[in-house]
Design a protein around this nucleic acid. Structure first.
Lengths: 211, 211
DNA sequence: GTCTATAGAGTGATAGAC
DNA sequence: GTCTATCACTCTATAGAC
């Protein structure tokens, strides 16, 4: 796993504590007021540090945002042990958990796009995240196939890519205009991509509730 | 259609020409060096304007980027009349066209995420874009159903949401790590979402060429 | 390794001239 | 309506002290 990207610069250090504290402050700022409100000056104020101190540990504002992201990752990893008992309800639950902090989702969306540039500080974070998620979803499909829920003809890796893309894309649409049931759309999308022709995307419960 | 968001402030004006020129300059900067290189100073230099002049027509850097986006939109609208003869090759062709300017795609991805915030200058652009695309894809599915290519049980509006989400998501993944065939993935994803169980996502050509 | 001091570039707000 | 002038703030790079 190789540790977080914005790690302490040296092996000694007051740094460990500082860095952790700053990450938390940045994260809280995101939750409270959105990532656009995260500024070096504001983080310094809240942490009772000078701007130069913050800047020493996080060489740029973008690094600060990556720090907030990592803090969010470590937090949600705790809640992440969803049983695979019923995947669709598990997915819906995951969506619900996310939905309570839309500003964090916004940060994820913005960083995922920015991370696309190899020179961006979030690049490594984005690469790791994508690899990890694709691997997890591929495993998920394999399980679902073993349980007879998913079509055994679907390739797990390609499924994983698609499901991740679909989830991220739906999330962005939902952040833009939260008038549809994200949990339902993600869950139904999962079923369709898993090759279940019985469940939705089709006949089932009728058209979604938005226009 | 109501005209572009970054429209001239008044009805008279040198403005029309200026604004158009600046939009073009910003767009070209994106193509050449990525959206991060778009700065008020650089645009002013290239347009032989003062920074204050640029700032008058585009009250912030973000507005400038929206301008670049609109320029891109108007450009691609020309090439956009793809026949629906063979959808999958049409999709692949669209992907190819896009792929020649990855920096523009990056701008789209970044702005789509940022537009999510109702106070962001790109919000209206994002809302319009999403509505337009969803409407277009819904029509597309209806056509494909009429032709017997797509499963008639699939709801066009929900399909449209999904396909847009999938395409956007795959594009971001591809920008991050362009080691898979984006055109193929989008085309196959379309088939799966349209309810064609014969085509891919399954048995067909074997696993994709990347790990 | 940690931090101070400083300076330069980029962003954006305002008051007022034309 | 269009633009000049000016200023305050944020970000970031650097040199060097502790």
């Amino acid at each position: 796993m190789a540790g977080p990207i914005t790690s302490p610069r040296g092996p000694y250090a007051k740094t460990r504590g500082r860095v952790e504290a700053v990450r938390r402050i940045a994260f809280e700022l995101v939750v409270e007021a959105g990532y656009r409100s995260v500024t070096i000056a504001e983080v310094a104020r809240r942490g009772d540090l000078t701007e130069a101190q913050v800047l020493y540990h996080f060489p740029s504002r973008e690094h600060l945002l990556v720090g907030a992201l990592e803090h969010a990752d470590s937090r949600s990893r705790a809640n992440q042990q969803v049983g695979v008992a019923d995947v669709r309800t598990a997915v819906a639950a995951a969506v619900d958990a996310d939905r309570s902090d839309p500003e964090v989702l916004r940060l994820f969306a913005a960083m995922s796009a920015a991370a696309t540039d190899p020179t961006h500080p979030a690049h490594e974070w984005g690469t790791r995240r994508t690899r990890a998620i694709v691997a997890r979803y591929a495993d998920l499909l394999t399980d679902l196939q073993a349980q007879g829920w998913a079509d055994p003809g679907v390739d797990p890796h390609r499924f994983a890519r698609r499901f991740m893309a679909l989830w991220d894309g739906l999330q962005t649409q939902w952040l833009l205009d939260p008038t549809f049931d994200l949990g339902r759309e993600v869950a139904d999308g999962l079923a369709v991509l898993a090759g279940r022709s019985d469940v939705d995307g089709r006949h089932s419960g009728g058209p979604a509730q938005d226009a």
